[in-house]
Write a protein that binds this DNA or RNA. Structure first.
Length: 446
DNA sequence: TCTGGGGTCCTAGGACCC
DNA sequence: TCTGGGGTCCTAGGACCC
């Protein structure tokens, strides 16, 4: 039999956290609201029983909340982050391998617990509850997708005592028979519609589907899902946290924004938040996306979604440099006459500041560019395509060495990249086009 | 008047290369 | 200059998750 893994999921996490510190909330309907108190992002079981939906806008439900005596809390992310760390700490102490999947979920490797997986996880569940006050549910199965299924049913069926094992095909079949397509992890409305159109109307039908067929008509994601439902693991346990790829800062506006100045001010504050986050994590970015959207809830207003990415000559987490780039982005996407509802910035292509790669070789259009293009060909021949790439930056063209992370499939080491960089500079100079970008050798990485 | 914020992965399609 | 196939890279956008 395949190794088992467990999914531990905190019940109604944010609502449970509030209860830990306010015992009077126990047994009563509790909801937690999003940042601007805009909509519901967590509900206690009692609140769910009242029919309050996830994401329900507060302003449309105020009356209901009042009538039913629902206790409404603003979110307190530092509290939730702290509680999460305590829960994860306990899980890590009780099982050797785990993947922290989100603030309130973790996958645990149960290899080595043969024959006592369920008993062990009941023990874990009791310990977490006793030491933190947070109730959790546990699903145990051979694959992540089935563990999600088990977890969902463990939450729903009181008789399970919060732990459900789906180790064999018979129990898996029985479980899947009770679910809708959209109960599966990774299937939401659109995908479910597509599957139904293909004649696949239930989780059991999906399990029985031909993997190649669903890949052809949907995607490789669904193909994997079919195999996972059959108990064949396609999604491994990622015990080492992957490096973050993007950092975003965005907000909805309390009232529509109609002046460019206002949008610029908002973007400036997002940039400073994002830059702060990056510096805290010792990261730098080499491209910033700016976006701004109209109000999608007002179909009679003109709809607009503007987005523009600005490539930076040097990877940085410096607020003023990022701001300059972002304001350039605002200039590109600004449309007068739009009532903007939301905007934000996304810092892409994150790299550790200590390993940040310096160096872009700016080139003008025209003959110089031709010369650099042939230099690029030469580099591609020498080092393989993709090592040296070409990026548009405003009206000029920029040469950039791709980050080690982006080009990991070329398995190139840092020393070799330096060699490529020097080669590129030598070539561009030989081609009669002095590099006008910052001199990479002068650039001090922090 | 009031409807979250922060992520990931995948695909399609165009540009460009050999 | 044209032809075509095979390939990479980039971006936008869709879909999903918590």
């Amino acid at each position: 039999m395949a190794d088992l893994l467990a999914l531990v999921d905190c019940n109604n996490f944010y609502a449970s956290c509030e209860r830990v510190f306010q015992p009077r909330l126990r047994g009563r309907p509790v909801v937690v609201l999003s940042n601007n108190d805009g909509c519901v992002i967590a509900r206690s079981n009692e609140a769910k029983a009242l029919g309050i939906a996830m994401g329900a806008p507060w302003h449309l439900n105020k009356d209901l909340f009042q009538r039913e005596g629902v206790i409404v809390r603003s979110s307190n992310y530092s509290l939730y982050g702290d509680m999460s760390a305590r829960v994860m700490q306990i899980l890590a102490e009780m099982t050797p391998q785990l993947e922290i999947y989100s603030i309130d979920e973790a996958f645990l490797d149960l290899a080595g617990f043969e024959g006592r997986a369920e008993a062990h996880m009941r023990q874990v569940r009791q310990t977490v509850l006793a030491w933190t006050g947070i109730p959790v549910s546990v699903g145990i199965a051979p694959t992540k997708t089935l563990a999600k299924v088990a977890n969902r049913l463990a939450k729903k069926r009181a008789a399970t005592g919060g732990v459900l094992v789906l180790a064999d095909e018979a129990s898996q079949t029985e479980a899947l028979a009770q679910l809708e397509l959209t109960d599966l992890w990774g299937v939401a409305g659109r995908l479910a519609q597509r599957l139904v159109a293909l004649g696949i109307a239930s989780p059991l039908a999906l399990r029985a589907a031909d993997p190649k067929f669903v890949r052809q008509h949907c995607s490789v994601v669904i193909e994997r899902m079919v195999l996972e439902l059959r108990g064949m693991p396609c999604l491994g346990l990622e015990t080492v946290a992957a490096n973050r790829q993007t950092i975003m800062a965005s907000r909805s506006f309390g009232r529509p924004v109609e002046y460019r100045r206002e949008l610029e001010e908002a973007v400036a504050s997002y940039i400073s938040r994002a830059a702060e986050k990056m510096r805290r994590q010792d990261l730098v970015t080499s491209a910033v996306t700016v976006f701004a959207l109209s109000n999608r809830f007002k179909p009679d207003e003109r709809q607009y979604s503007g987005t523009h990415t600005v490539h930076l000559p040097v990877a940085t987490a410096d607020t003023s440099r990022l701001l300059k780039a972002a304001l350039h982005g605002v200039a590109r996407i600004w449309q007068p006459g739009i009532r903007y509802k939301k905007a934000g910035v996304i810092c892409l292509d994150l790299q550790p500041a200590s390993k940040a790669q310096p160096g872009l070789f700016h080139a003008a259009d025209g003959p110089e560019r031709q010369a650099l293009m042939s230099a690029l060909d030469e580099l591609n021949r020498r080092y393989g395509r993709g090592m040296v790439s070409f990026a548009a930056a405003g009206t000029s063209q920029a040469w950039s060495l791709r980050s080690e992370r982006r080009s990991r499939r070329y398995t190139t080491r840092w020393a070799e990249l330096l060699e490529v960089k020097d080669g590129a500079r030598a070539l561009s100079q030989a081609a009669g086009s002095p590099s006008r970008g910052p001199d990479p050798s002068q650039h001090k990485t922090p």
